[in-house]
Design a protein around this nucleic acid. Structure first.
Lengths: 248, 248
DNA sequence: GGTAATTTGTACGTATGTATT
DNA sequence: TAATACATACGTACAAATTAC
């Protein structure tokens, strides 16, 4: 039962594992995208033509394309001017797949909410520190506008969760670290639906006040104050989520 | 061009977006898995039977299954006693998808290496601190064994990178936070191939020494010492990666 | 060791849905 | 409205893989 691919012997490896047609097609297209041979936005040949090129059936080709689609490497657009298009794979896709995975694990009960919240805090603290140092004037203007709109929004305004998300992700983006930005965005998304459920007027007011404090620290380029402010904010939020969860 | 699903009007939402057959099948099976209705390890009915149940063609069913497979929710096994099996979706799957995404972004050049390395450090520091506090005797024994094997391994031993990976991920697991563990494992994987290329005997020796220092701190449940040791270690590694990259 | 049985994998022709012109 | 070009879906047949006898 020992295969040559997995034993640790020093024998020369000659054979390559035989790949099924679908997998060969998939890997070839993936490599073409990741190598830059296929530019983002570019349209692939029609499926019939592409199947002919690979010398496989359209069924096989479509299964390969389907996998690449689910991995956000291409998008399929039906209709006359439609086709299979190479997606721009930027750091946002990391946030997307993380969000999907964390959501799955949370609904399955495979991870606890506080595990996500903890990691979120581990990342948001360095994020605000870096944002305080590296923020551009545009970042500052964006954050200011968000906080202003939060001040005037009523508690039942449907865009409140969206504003909160934008505030935190914009800070993470201002850090200059795109991996950090994606992780923060994903973890924020996962921890968001819960705490926006028990949004009382009082909690809303406090949140805006805390956001304003974070913004002031970033404005003054004061990393220490920014860290203190975000810790304050996250601690406050989690206390209210815990209270909410314990109450039901 | 404004769709009813996205405008912010207060109109009552009645209509549900029409889903294509493939998507309906996909969502239904996914929901069954995530709700626990389908237990992990369980085998789905044969594709022909399943297609009959959904009243779709086997082609359509297979595209749905292919997506779920690429998302690690099911595995397909060909052959007589084969079939489609529900995968155990634990926190490891988060690490898997993160690894894939980060690898893609790195080869595409959409993110820089140091962005990944920075985030890795943001997470490994709290990870070792928590590990120092929560570590079990089993964790300690496991870490000790790894370090012992690293002491005796020669530089060209093929299992060296594996030992390094195990050391860092075991620490992250010992933290008790599974999200943290997955993230650390994924980011470690992404930052690994580079620094194991220029593994000189001297670097190898220093690495083992630093690992031993981390282990001692965790043994003594000294979080501060553990933090200092891991920062030391990561700083050392990154200096050598920078040196290696600058050299070529 | 060979043969049958079971299940996934692939092929192909056709029909339908969808969006643009 | 009709024509066009593409993805989507269907049904059947066959190939390949694996197990059981």
């Amino acid at each position: 039962m020992v295969s040559g691919a997995t034993n640790g012997s020093k024998q020369r490896m000659i054979g390559q594992a035989v790949l099924r047609p679908r997998q060969q097609v998939e890997e070839t297209i993936r490599a073409a995208i990741l190598s830059g041979e296929l530019q983002s936005g570019e349209m692939l040949p029609p499926e019939a033509e592409l199947a002919r090129q690979f010398n496989v059936s359209r069924t096989t080709l479509r299964e390969a394309l389907r996998v690449l689609t689910s991995q956000h490497l291409i998008t399929k657009i039906p209709g006359a001017r439609g086709g299979n298009f190479v997606q721009s794979v930027d750091y946002h896709s990391l946030g997307t797949v993380m969000t999907e995975a964390v959501d799955n694990l949370l609904t399955l009960g495979s991870i606890r909410f506080d595990e996500v919240a903890d990691v979120r805090q581990y990342l948001e603290v360095p994020a605000v520190r870096l944002a305080a140092i590296h923020r551009s004037e545009d970042d500052l203007a964006g954050l200011t506008e968000i906080v202003e709109r939060q001040k005037t929004a009523s508690v039942d305004d449907p865009e409140i969760p969206d504003l909160d998300r934008k505030f935190h992700t914009l800070i993470a983006r201002a850090s200059g670290n795109r991996v950090l930005a994606s992780c923060v965005a994903a973890l924020h998304h996962a921890t968001e639906p819960v705490h926006y459920l028990d949004l009382s007027p009082e909690v809303g007011k406090q949140t805006v006040r805390q956001h304003a404090a974070i913004l002031r620290a970033i404005d003054k380029r004061d990393a220490d104050a920014a860290e203190a402010a975000i810790v304050d904010h996250l601690t406050y939020l989690r206390k209210h989520i815990v209270a909410h969860q314990a109450a039901e």
